[in-house]
Every structure is written in C-alpha cells, then in structure tokens.
C-alpha cells in the first residue's frame, strides 16, 4: 500500500499532493470552500488546483459554511465527490447542522439509497495567539456522530495517506488538520499512499509507558519520549489518528504491554476525545493497568489571545514528560 520511494515535503504539500492525484484520477472530485481557488487556500493546501483542474472543479465560495456543506450534500446525492474546506474548525460550528442532520444521517436514514462521499477538511488547534474563536479543537463534536469518520493526521505522510483514503471512501470523512503542522516536514511516500481510516499506529515502541496521542500532540509525545529515554524510560507512542471508528484494539494492546497510559490530546479534557479514549482503554485493558489513565489537554478556559497567556493553556512535550515520570514513580 505504501510507495517504496519517499520525498521530503511539508504537511501542506502532502495534502496538496493527495488532492491533485485524486482530482486527476477521478473527475467527480470537486474542491470548494472559502479562498480555495484563486488564493490557493489560506494554508496553501489547494494551491495550483484551479489552474490545473479549472473553475468548475475548484470553487471559491461565499462565506456560507452551512451552505457549503449543504451544497456538498446535494452534490454528493447527484453523484459528485465534493471536498469541502472549512477554514477553521471554529467555523465548523456554522455547518454542524448540515453535518449532523445531513451528512452523517442520510446514508442510514435513506436506507442506503444515497452515499455521502464528502470530505470536510478543516484545521484546528491553538498556538498562534489567535484567541477564542480561531484556536479550538472540536473534533469530539464530529466524532460523536455515528456515520461519520473523524481523522487527524499528525505527519505529512499520514496527511497524504488519510486524505487519499478519505477521498476514495464512499463514506463521509471530517479530516482535521492542525495549523501548527502545515509547515512540518517529513518523508512522504510517492505515488499511491493510503492510510486506512479507522486505524491507529504505534509510532515509537516502548515497554514502560504508553502515550496515546492525537494530532500535534504526537510530535510533542515523541519529543517527550526522547527525553525520557535519556532517563532509561522506554515510552511507547501511539498515534490515535482516527477518532471514529476508534482503533481500540491497537490502543488497548499498547496499554496491556506497558500498564501505564497517558492520553495527550490538545482539546479540553472534559467530554473531549481523551475521555472516550481513556474509557475505551480502561474497558478493554483494566486488568493490566497499574494506575488510572492520565489525561492531558488544554486548561478549561476559552483560548486566550495573549502570548503571555496562551502557552499556559496548552499541553506540550514537557507536560507529557512530567506526566509519564509521575505515573512511573507512583507505580514503581
């Protein structure tokens, strides 16, 4: 499934590569959203697509989020495969009606008469002092809906692989990117590269503790694991990457191996994805856990804009490192 040769590229370029390849392969794939055509997307993900595929396949839309997703529902029912960009996950709030009451519901409600091959790309997360309306992590809201995939790539390779899988899926997918990852670089397989939806991946093996990480917390967890390795602690890092379906088998297997679990997700802890992940691991691996699952996430306040305030709200590598140390200490 994975190409043999790789190219070093950014997360943005990897997403662009996936879009370009699938648009070339299937003329039913149509990209629409705010700023996606002439401007190329505010994070440059759709750059060049208008020139290559033309104005009837790459559409600049009005600022009408519910209309964009609602339109995509009609397009899908008429046989197209729309790829919607919602510029900030915070703006996805404006489209939750059509996502919850249409996209996620109709294939089931209409008893299979229609499919919803819709990909909603959005980006979330804090870290650029953007304040309370442009920094949230709201993936729990879409992951709550049966009938809808919610995936969060943490690396350029997974960005390409998950987006390619999403574009080929006849089921709807919300793909949540992270604004601080767009410029991150990594090796990306050339040619066809798919990461199956609904799969987690062990990105660093270890025996002493498990960090179940999501999106930008994956590189943070890897940094923490490097530090902890110097103290002789071997930390296993698992990229959860698909929130629904949730790869509980892979998560629980790691929990059983190490007996110590930290969940690191940037979203708020209460009712966030870390709650579901912790519950699933506890249900499946309780007997092998040496302590309750520890959760790390954002402090429960709306994201403040000031550079003096925002860092105090966010989890990071140091917090993960500290949490693992404490967990090991109390279970030694």
């Amino acid at each position: 499934m994975t190409g043999t040769t790789t190219t070093r590229m950014t997360y943005s370029q990897a997403l662009n590569d996936a879009l370009r390849r699938e648009m070339a392969a299937d003329d039913r794939v149509v990209v629409l959203g705010e700023d996606v055509a002439h401007y190329g997307g505010i994070f440059s993900v759709t750059r060049g697509l208008l020139d290559e595929f033309g104005a009837d396949r790459v559409l600049d839309t009005p600022i009408s989020e519910n209309g964009i997703v609602g339109g995509a529902i009609g397009m899908a029912m008429s046989g197209l495969r729309p790829v919607v960009e919602i510029m900030y996950t915070d703006f996805l709030c404006l489209a939750l009606d059509t996502i919850a009451n249409g996209v996620a519901a109709f294939p089931f409600a209409f008893n299979g008469q229609v499919s919803m091959p819709i990909v909603v790309r959005t980006q979330g997360g804090a870290g650029i002092n953007a304040g309370p309306q442009h920094s949230k992590s709201l993936e729990a809201w879409t992951a709550h809906l049966p009938g809808l995939h919610t995936v969060m790539p943490s690396s350029p390779a997974d960005a390409k692989g998950l987006l390619t899988a999403a574009l080929r899926s006849d089921e709807p997918v919300v793909l949540v990117e992270h604004k601080l990852l767009y410029r991150s670089e990594g090796e990306v397989p050339e040619g066809d590269h798919l990461v199956p939806l609904g799969t987690a991946e062990v990105v660093r093996p270890g025996r002493d503790a498990t960090v179940l990480a999501l999106s930008r917390m994956v590189p943070e967890a890897l940094t923490a694991a490097e530090q902890l390795a110097r103290q002789g602690l071997e930390v296993e890092v698992v990229d959860v990457r698909s929130l629904r379906p949730l790869d509980t088998a892979t998560l629980a297997a790691s929990a059983r191996r190490t007996g110590r679990v930290v969940v690191a997700a940037e979203s708020w802890v209460r009712y966030g994805p870390s709650a579901e992940i912790a519950a699933a691991v506890t249900e499946l691996a309780f007997d092998d856990l040496r302590a309750p699952v520890v959760r790390l996430g954002s402090l429960g306040v709306p994201y403040p804009a000031s550079p003096a305030l925002e860092p105090s709200v966010l989890p990071n590598a140091a917090a993960i490192e500290h949490a693992v140390e404490q967990l090991v200490k109390r279970t030694a």
């Binding site: 609602g70 339109g71 529902i73 009609g74 008429s78 729309p82």
Partner: peptide
C-alpha cells in the same frame, strides 16, 4: 435550499 445548490452545481 442548500441541497438544491449542490444538485444545481452537478
């Protein structure tokens, strides 16, 4: 209304 936009585009 929203769905009609998508059908119309197609």
């Amino acid at each position: 209304l929203l769905f009609a936009v998508g059908h119309g585009l197609a």
